[in-house]
């Protein structure tokens, strides 16, 4: 009974809090630009509206066009349920769950790319090609980051990997993971969610043809993914396991807010990179994680 309650509670946290993050980012961007900006809860209003709307389907699209976003949403929520929440621990933990998490993110990516290709639009093909290609480097960076945490803690399950801090390499790891966060969630400088030129988009161009409830699932899934990466980054870097439960919870919330504000500031101050530079930046993220790994290796040998 307790387990079911814990799962429901955890699910509620992820489902209800995730859409807050894009709102905060937009508020930060508006504040830096001296505008009032949309309300923080804008995404909630959008989701509620989309959920009630009808669907326009391309004449070329198969049922996979609607199944794709559904599967991606389940995969992202599944990944989120594996992620421990500071002092709250996790609903389910086993050796190797971190690999399941990485591959669930890949499943979500496959489904989004599949749904994009359904429409036969060249723009969406372009977006899907970019998404799956840049993922190669992003995945290398994530696995390297996870390896460095494993070396640090001698463990392959998320709860024990994430409770101590990343040690001396924490700064490198934080920089690497933050860059991956920006790439995986299609934020500036990798992608501009607000651009109006389809030729230059990645994620946004893949969902051009979606509408109504499937679009709501995609937008909500994207916000869950953003929260997931922010939680991962904070827990990887801060020694939450060493703090008392309320302090750890406070640190986690403050950390996630700091990351969100950081994303907003990066978006305000940087322009989107030219596409040929994107692999370079991702390689840099990979190298940062690799150096963090080497530091963890040397640090642990003492």
């Amino acid at each position: 009974m307790n387990l079911i309650l814990a799962v429901i509670l955890r699910l509620a946290v992820w489902l209800l809090l995730a859409p807050l993050l894009p709102g905060i980012i937009n508020k930060v961007k508006a504040w830096v630009a001296g505008r009032r900006g949309p309300p923080v809860l804008q995404l909630y209003y959008d989701l509620a509206k989309l959920w009630r709307k009808g669907v326009v389907l391309s004449t070329l699209a198969s049922p996979g066009f609607i199944a794709g976003p559904a599967v991606a949403w389940v995969a992202l929520l599944g990944a989120a349920m594996l992620m421990p929440l500071g002092p709250g621990g996790t609903a389910l933990s086993f050796r190797g769950d971190v690999l399941l998490l990485i591959y669930l993110l890949a499943l979500a990516r496959f489904c989004t790319a599949w749904a994009a290709m359904e429409t036969g639009s060249a723009f969406e093909g372009m977006g899907a090609a970019r998404e799956v290609s840049y993922a190669v480097l992003a995945e290398a960076a994530i696995v390297t980051a996870v390896l460095s945490l494993s070396v640090q803690t001698g463990s392959v399950s998320l709860v024990t990997m994430l409770s101590p801090s990343a040690g001396a390499g924490a700064v490198l790891l934080a920089a690497g993971l933050f860059t991956v966060l920006l790439a995986e969630n299609c934020r500036v400088p990798f992608d501009d969610p607000n651009t109006h030129l389809e030729l230059t988009m990645i994620h946004e161009v893949m969902v051009l043809d979606h509408s109504g409830p499937p679009l709501a699932a995609i937008l909500h899934g994207a916000s869950v993914k953003l929260l997931l990466f922010a939680v991962l980054l904070i827990q990887a870097v801060l020694p939450l396991g060493a703090l008392s439960a309320p302090a750890a919870a406070g640190a986690l919330v403050a950390g996630v807010l700091a990351v969100t504000v950081g994303v907003g500031l990066v978006e305000s101050w940087l322009a989107r990179l030219a596409f040929r530079r994107v692999p370079l930046l991702l390689t840099t993220a990979f190298l940062l994680c690799l150096f963090a790994l080497l530091v963890a290796w040397k640090g642990g040998a003492k």
Binding site: G54, V56, T59, T119, S121, A122, D209
Partner: peptide
């Protein structure tokens, strides 16, 4: 249930 309409791929 929300209503489904078929249309051409938007293609910008």
């Amino acid at each position: 249930t929300n209503g489904l309409r078929r249309g051409m791929t938007w293609d910008c």
